Amino acid sequence: MTGQPKLCRVDEVVARLDEGPWPWAMAERARIDAHWAGLIAANPALYNGQVLIARDRRFAGNRLEVRYTPTDYAAFLTFRDLGFPEPSTSNCFGLAALRASDGGFLLGVMGGHTANPGRVYFPGGTPEPADVLPDGRVDLLGNVLRELGEETGLRPEEVEVRPGWTVAVEGGRTALMRDIRIDLPAEAARARIMEFLDAEAEPELAGIRIIRAPEEAEQDAVPGFVRSYLRHAFRSQAD
């Protein structure tokens, strides 16, 4: 897909885990291992943990249905860096579209030790096996709130989670953005988060950027799906 990411709103995302293996990762293991060796040579802080990759994604009325398969981070990054070569498989991840009481959005600047250094987007990340419930459902809202806490220090009781999801499809990426509000002005919320980051030995975020108008996010460091979300959000506010 080229051009602007496609945005749509769904009432719910129903996600389940299919136990592996992932055939692409099995077939490409030698290439994955070689690619991973290069990645960790450049950035030894990377860790080859387990993540979930979406093997199937379909819209059904006002909901999105996703099937995930576990894989290692090395396979996930190789697949990403090769441009998502298997069309039916994608990175389907949740993000906290964090908005302050004065209307400003709070975006994180990824730290230099991460796999996305310098990128600027909402707190969140690819789901992990820890997000799988005992009945096999993948708790994507739980994933978003966990990632929000890990990256910003904000606890679930400190924020308001609005209903529904905004889905942005951009090539091999499917961003699931949840409207999350904090009852603080943007500058105060940023100060609260920066206090948390300053106390962390190795925070995932290098900083917090406040966006008060869509043109402030029109830069290469901000992914297209975030820019599309912000344009829509500010346009809806104006209407």
Rank of each mutant, 00 (worst) to 15 (best):
D72G: 13
G108N: 07
L148G: 13
G49E: 12
L95A: 13
T166S: 13
F122E: 04
R178C: 14
R227F: 02
G224D: 10
R146K: 15
A74D: 11
A45L: 09
L98D: 06
D11T: 13
V109R: 15
H35N: 12
R9Q: 14
A189C: 10
A75Q: 07
L154S: 06
V226Y: 05
P163I: 12
V13D: 00
F225K: 04
L145H: 05
Y73N: 10
D18G: 03
S228W: 00
V161N: 05
F225I: 00
R192I: 09
I211T: 12
V120S: 04
Y229V: 04
F122C: 11
A201V: 15
P21K: 06
R192C: 05
P87E: 09
A233M: 12
R162C: 15
V13M: 06
I210F: 06
L184Y: 07
P87L: 09
L133T: 13
R63L: 05
G171K: 03
R119D: 02
A34P: 13
A189L: 05
I210M: 09
V226D: 03
P185K: 11
P123W: 03
G49H: 04
L230F: 11
A233S: 13
R9E: 15
E170V: 03
G108P: 03
L140T: 03
D33R: 14
L95Q: 12
